[in-house]
């Protein structure tokens, strides 16, 4: 599974403060800690409070690039912030994210084509988040159609079927898991699937337990990538064990160490 580290987000108090004070040390420490913990990609989000989000994104990307060449997921709802982040990062990037609202797709899919990079597409359209798996597939098809229209290979699209907090919408995880499985039949090559995982446990008291259980269930349905707290050791170990049980990693007695060692080599 492609593990995308979620911690560099202005929404977190420590990161928000570091952005405002332009304190590179905090950002670089969090970046390296996530790479060491097994992140394949680092998500970069300036958060809601940055005064000049474009400048903040460029500063964040440059600050991270000083210490690691890990791929970056440039995370914003604003096309100009995304564009600035992609430009600063150079290669090894992905766009996080677009919805299926036509104006947004028209702004962001050409960026994915221009930078030849993966793009996350949320199954959200003008009327919001669909209620069930079938509704998610309808929106996913619009995202696939946009790939074809703007010249982005369909396997560069990561469809996020949007999971919501389980304490608010308890029927949803089942629909999301179904949608993950259905995405494989959308086109050839099929789009990949991704989840912003931590959302499922917002406002609950057992966040780590819910996160890792949800991740394992989603993996069993074919999930390819997830934006997660990679520093949650129990979560990463559950993911590694699931990969072994799904025959995505060859078993050996020290399969957790083998996974981590192989990732250390790649990083």
């Amino acid at each position: 599974m492609l593990a995308i580290g979620e911690r560099i987000n202005g929404m977190f108090r420590e990161i928000g403060r570091a952005i405002r004070r332009q304190d590179p040390e905090v950002i670089q420490r969090v970046a390296l800690r996530q790479v060491e913990a097994g992140a394949d990609v680092l998500d970069v989000n300036v958060g809601p409070t940055a005064e000049d989000p474009v400048a903040a994104m460029v500063w964040l990307v440059n600050t991270i690039r000083e210490v690691t060449a890990a791929p970056l997921s440039i995370d914003s709802t604003k096309p100009e912030v995304l564009r600035a982040g992609l430009q600063a990062a150079g290669d090894r990037v992905m766009i996080n994210s677009t919805t299926a609202v036509p104006e947004r797709m028209a702004a962001l899919f050409p960026l994915a084509a221009q930078y030849n990079c993966p793009i996350v597409g949320l199954t959200i359209d003008a009327s919001g988040v669909p209620r069930d798996a079938a509704g998610r597939m309808e929106v996913a098809l619009q995202l696939v159609a946009a790939c074809l229209e703007y010249g982005v290979p369909t396997d560069r699209l990561y469809i996020d079927p949007v999971i919501l907090p389980v304490n608010a919408a308890q029927h949803l995880p089942t629909e999301v898991f179904k949608a993950i499985g259905m995405c494989r039949t959308l086109c050839d090559p099929p789009p990949k699937t991704i989840l912003g995982l931590s959302n499922v446990s917002q406002g609950t008291t057992q966040r780590s337990l819910l996160n890792r259980t949800c991740l394992v269930m989603a993996l069993a349905h074919g999930l390819d990538a997830a934006i997660v707290d990679v520093t949650d050791e129990a979560l990463m170990e559950a993911m590694i064990a699931a990969e072994v049980l799904l025959n995505r990693q060859v078993y050996c007695d020290d399969f957790v160490r083998a996974y981590r060692a192989a990732h250390a080599v790649q990083g």
């Binding site: 060859v250 078993y251 050996c252 007695d253 020290d254 160490r257 083998a258 060692a261």
Partner: peptide
């Protein structure tokens, strides 16, 4: 599996 284990 043992091959992978020896490698590690």
């Amino acid at each position: 599996s043992i091959q992978k284990q020896v490698n590690i």
